[in-house]
Design a protein around this nucleic acid. Structure first.
Length: 1062
RNA sequence: GCUCGAGUGGCGGAAUUGGUAGACGCGCUGGAUUCAAAAUCCAGUUCUUUCGGGAGUGUGGGUUCGAUUCCCACCUCGAGUACCA
């Protein structure tokens, strides 16, 4: 016995021990700082970045590292190509989940965040990433958020000059105000800023000046209608709301007016749009930003209100249809509503406003079809015809878009049409359809049943000076007319709103702002960071203030320039003012973090030094999920453009190339629980029931004979007894013929099922279980079970299932032949679905190299795909084969020989070199196209072929090691060392592809007949078309396929194909 | 509804500018080795067939000597968006 054991151990010496190898190299890389990037280098730079992870308490599952593995392969590849690669990692560590957890447990979010990060790091380290950890950042770190606050203050001290089309400093704006007032200024600012002259400005009080400046600042304080989420106790940005409920938690969201910090991102709408043309991003991502920004071209038109000083400005994309206007509609929230409503209509209008305000955003969205509205009693005047137009209010008009009012053209807009139909308003027609022959059909009515909203196929009629014109001609003419009359002008409108920047939360960056006489003032930048204060509870105060309202030390002393405490109830001494109580949103810290990684030494002095910024410029490759399309990816672009304007960074786009990785889905496992209460009924008379109609439900209840409680109340039936399809499959596997399968009915399934739980039926009731005399009904439901209890053949490990899930300790698991087969379904990976696969476990069992390669092998990077642990053995088998290629046993393994590293110095065979170069070419192309799945296949092919060729030549194996090292770095390092190198493989030059090894002298031609390949024929490559043709025609099989016919045509593409037609 | 993306064996997926459909891997079947298992190795595996073939890349049509690839129409699934005037 002992001897046998020894033998086995001895035999294992040269085996592929991935756990040891991987631990060894991970340690080596950490100790030698192998992947530390240099800020001064002769090498060209390359910056590879993963989207900022939020360190959640659940840790990583196998879906998370997918993008990291892809970017790591690319980073390693670039190092082999001679680049100085920056490949950093860090944590977006402020955020809601840690705070929610803090509210529940009282634990400081900093503590849980710290723990979560430690766990993340541990998991990441096991996968062997080539991160430069010396540059790690955490957004919740004061040394980091110091600079987030600093950038906020830069925004606070800036305004947007439309003439220069860039942001400029507030100091310059003050200068302009002092010299010429604001009359000539062309700035992005709040609506309705009063006009003043230079002398006015100089006469204003400081408070008044601040009030005016606030209307120009790029981050400003304003009373805005926000999305308030009562359950989360905070406001949410538009992109944080999904289907009318909060993205995190799914809580309802209501609209509420609050004083909030906002970011004037709208100033950048056009540049954000234009910038998309300069970056290499996936088209769907660009499309969703384009839609989000929502540029539309049209005109503003002012409508005078009759017998009133007021005017209604509207925005329209179809100014050409102005002669089709038959009424006006205002949003219920519109300021003018209360001012113009007539006394007769007052009550109706007020009732309507009250009713619509109650409806939540979600209801309003769900219920888009019902048409509601009410007449205000007032009339507007058509700017050209002077006709009176009744003014209505209706909630299909949104307060937040355009001017919150529309000119209704029922013949040209479906919503206006529906509104007009519903309230019996006139629908004048202004369209004459064009007929295909080039004429105009005056008689046909385009708008009998619906609005005509096309921009082509018509000319205008009943439109005064626009008659006979098409869309573009009319649009041009009407805008000119509007401008001449001074009642409107051409305008571009954006859907994009300014971004709300305040959150009523604790775990975020404090604003470096205090309030002096009600006006916000910046704390001096040299006093940053303004640290997050301690609070005893993470909830809002009783007065409804944000959690920072609980901080006892949260006032700013202007004289001492420090945070001081003011005892509760006391008036602050002079020069001491309250600090801002809101904190910044999650996207603050993530909008600039990519610049922080560039800096390594001067992080205390600057957010990033000029040298670092000039060297690294922007991110060359950014990999992450598409869910950030309208959040992080838009805000980052905005901040970068702003920072560029103010000369803080040299680039105006953060991410040159971006790739979206697809989600890895989980395969959930289900067990099927049968209700233990079984209802026995008489068999119904089918004919009688068919005649009964609605009464049948009541009648069936009368048929119930008895309800039987089985002996166990937790009964699991197998998949085969849950779904009829599976039942049939099972029968088929038991050797039933197709005919027999066809004859199977639900009744057969029921019989088997009843049989399977017969032992649980109380003895006295057993006679009821006869399908010939009774109808038996019960229910069963699918329940998620932990995938770790299930093996690759979908069998449930019944013992661990019972032991580890307390709910089913005493369950009766009904198997078939002692096996219980679970149901499977592909779903998102999540804790609640018990389908999470942990990368640590995979690394432990199969190794990190196998995990890395398998994740790539699953399919194209951008595509969503299900995870199936069973398939991983193929990749592991491959790595074992690869290992064996560098080892040999003498005597042969079967004769008790042991594996030893062996590489021959002899020159390689022609075939082996061909395999090598074919692989170099393919892998290089694949990496450059981010087609990692296909290069895994080519590695497998290469190793299969080299093994078949018994290749052990260094000439081939050395370059092969480098080739594969981006994918499986640990095994590559180990083999590299065994090949006799002392340095890490990570910067070894990538093998060079040489065409000469692939040159072929002959080609196996596929010979097709009418496009169908029939046989192949090997022919030399050098020969002419004629020679090919005669060789093919002379072939015996050709005659056979032609069956005596004469070919009509022979297509020959040398080096490709021969096709015979006839 | 609109915008975008995708439909190929039992499964994940390959297929250069239109040129041998199903590479590679999983699973399955059979075999070798083993007391046995694991591991390993070998062979087979789109469907159908009267073993000559025939059909086949969501469906229907078109262009072509030749279409998974290009064009038109439709169906299904997925993602985003949602009264945007």
């Amino acid at each position: 016995m002992g001897n046998q054991f020894f033998q086995k151990e001895k035999r294992n010496m040269g085996k592929y021990h991935f756990n040891e190898i991987e631990a060894k190299w991970q340690k080596f890389w950490a100790e030698n700082q192998t992947f530390k990037a240099e800020n001064q280098s002769k090498k060209p730079k390359y910056y590879v970045l993963d989207m900022f992870p939020y360190p959640s308490g659940a840790g990583l599952h196998v879906g998370h590292p997918l993008g990291y593995i892809a970017s790591d392969i690319y980073a390693r590849y670039k190092r082999h190509q001679g680049f100085n690669v920056l490949h950093p990692q860090g944590y977006d560590s402020f955020g809601l989940p840690a705070e929610q957890y803090a509210i529940q447990t009282g634990q400081h979010p900093a503590k849980t965040t710290e723990e979560n990060i430690a766990r993340y790091r541990e998991q990441l380290d096991k996968i062997g990433f080539s991160f430069d950890w010396s540059r790690e950042v955490r957004t919740s770190n004061p040394e980091y958020y110091k600079w987030t606050q600093w950038i906020f203050l830069q925004l606070f001290e800036s305004w947007y000059d439309k003439n220069a089309d860039k942001a400029r400093s507030i100091e310059e704006l003050r200068g302009i105000f002092s010299s010429e007032g604001n009359v000539h200024i062309n700035a992005v600012a709040d609506e309705g800023v009063e006009h003043f002259t230079a002398s006015d400005w100089l006469g204003f009080s400081e408070i008044k000046k601040q009030e005016i400046l606030l209307k120009y600042r790029l981050t400003y304080l304003a009373e805005t209608e926000v999305n308030w989420c009562p359950q989360l106790g905070t406001v949410l940005a538009n992109d944080e709301i999904v289907n009318g409920v909060s993205e995190r938690g799914g809580y309802p969201v209501v609209r509420k007016k609050m004083k909030q910090w906002s970011m004037r991102i709208t100033a950048y709408a056009q540049r954000l749009l234009d910038g998309l043309d300069t970056i290499d991003w996936p088209q769907p991502l660009k499309d969703s930003q384009t839609n989000w920004i929502g540029r539309s071209k049209g005109a503003t038109v002012e409508f005078k209100i009759q017998n009133s000083e007021f005017k209604i400005p509207v925005f329209t994309t179809r100014p050409d249809t102005i002669f089709g206007v038959s009424f006006m509609v205002l949003a219920p929230e519109h300021d003018l509503v209360s001012k113009i409503t007539t006394s007769e209509q007052k009550e109706a209008v007020e009732n309507y406003i009250e009713a619509t305000a109650k409806r939540s955003e979600r209801e309003r969205m769900a219920d888009v079809k019902s048409i509601t509205g009410v007449f205000t009693g007032a009339y507007a005047e058509h700017p050209f015809t002077k006709e009176p137009l009744p003014i209505w209010i209706g909630d299909y008009v949104l307060a937040g878009y355009g001017t919150g009012a529309v000119m209704s053209v029922p013949c040209g807009d479906q919503r206006d049409y529906d509104f007009a139909k519903h309230f019996n308003l006139p629908i004048p027609n202004i369209f004459s359809p064009l007929v295909p022959e080039g004429g105009i059909n005056e008689n046909e009515n385009l708008i009998e049943t619906e609005a005509f909203s096309e921009k082509t196929g018509f000319v205008l009629k009943n439109s005064d000076f626009l008659n006979g014109l098409n869309y573009s001609e009319a649009t041009e003419k009407i805008i000119a007319a509007l401008e001449e009359k001074g009642v409107g002008k051409g305008k571009i409108n954006y859907r994009l709103r300014d971004a709300v920047f305040s959150r009523q939360r604790y775990w975020g960056e404090p604003f470096p702002i205090y309030y002096k006489d009600g006006m916000p003032h910046a704390i001096p930048t040299e006093c940053l960071p303004l640290r997050l204060p301690e609070v005893e509870k993470y909830l809002p105060t009783e007065e409804g203030e944000p959690p920072l309202g609980r901080a006892t030390k949260w006032h700013w002393d202007e004289n001492k320039n420090e945070v001081v405490s003011v005892p509760e109830g006391e008036k602050p001494p002079s020069g001491v003012w309250g600090l801002e109580l809101n904190t910044m949103p999650g996207w603050a810290g993530s909008s600039w973090y990519f610049f922080r990684y560039m800096e390594d030494e001067k992080r205390d002095e600057v957010f990033a030094s000029k040298e670092a910024l000039d060297y690294w410029k922007n991110v060359d490759l950014y990999i992450g999920g598409s869910e950030h399309a309208t959040g992080h990816l838009l805000y980052s672009r905005f901040w970068v453009k702003f920072m560029h304007d103010r000369g803080l960074v040299p680039v105006d786009e953060p991410f040159k190339k971006l790739i979206n990785q697809g989600m890895i889905l989980g395969e959930s496992a289900f067990v099927y629980r049968m209700n233990s209460k079984i209802t026995i009924s008489e068999i119904p008379d089918v004919k009688k029931f068919a005649q009964m109609g609605d009464e049948w439900a009541r009648e069936t209840r009368k048929l119930i004979v008895k309800t039987i409680q089985l002996k166990n109340d937790k009964i699991l039936i197998p998949l085969q007894f849950f779904k009829f399809d599976e039942f049939k499959k099972w029968k088929r596997s038991k050797g039933f013929s197709e005919d027999e399968i066809k004859k199977l009915t639900e009744k057969d399934l029921e019989k088997e099922r009843i049989n399977s739980f017969k032992h649980l039926i109380p003895k006295e009731d057993i006679h009821y279980f006869d399908l010939n005399n009774f109808s038996i009904s019960y229910s069963a439901q699918a329940i998620h079970t932990n995938v770790s209890f299930v093996n690759s053949s979908n069998e449930l490990d019944i013992n661990s299932f019972k032991n580890e899930s307390s709910e089913f300790k005493d369950a009766e698991v009904i198997g078939i032949n002692g096996k219980y087969i679970v149901g499977r379904e592909v779903e998102k990976m999540s804790k609640s679905k018990y389908n999470v696969v942990n990368p640590d476990d995979i690394c432990e069992q199969y190794g990190a190299d196998t995990l890395r390669m398998y994740e790539m092998f699953l399919g194209p990077l951008e595509q969503a795909k299900p995870w199936n642990t069973a398939g991983i053995t193929g990749v592991q088998g491959f790595l074992k084969k690869l290992w064996k290629l560098y080892h040999s046993a003498s005597p042969a393994l079967s004769e008790g020989g042991e594996l030893e590293f062996y590489v021959s110095e002899d020159s390689a065979s022609k075939d082996s070199l061909k395999v090598l170069h074919k692989t170099i070419k393919k892998v290089q192309e694949d990496i450059e196209n981010f087609s990692f799945n296909t290069s895994v296949s080519s590695f497998m092919i290469a190793v299969n072929e080299l093994t078949a060729q018994n290749c052990n030549s260094r000439e081939v194996l050395k370059p092969l090691t480098i080739l594969i090292s981006p994918y499986t770095p640990h095994i590559a390092e180990e083999l590299w060392e065994k090949l006799g190198h002392n340095e890490s493989i990570s910067t070894a030059p990538f093998p060079k592809f040489e065409e000469k090894f692939l040159v072929e002298s002959s080609k196996e031609y596929p010979i097709s007949f009418n496009g169908k390949m029939r046989f192949t024929l090997e022919l030399p490559l050098g020969i002419s078309k004629e020679e090919i043709e005669s060789a093919v025609m002379a072939h015996e099989k050709t005659a056979q396929y032609l069956e005596g016919r004469k070919p009509k045509k022979v297509i020959i593409v040398p080096g490709k194909i021969v096709n015979i037609v006839g």
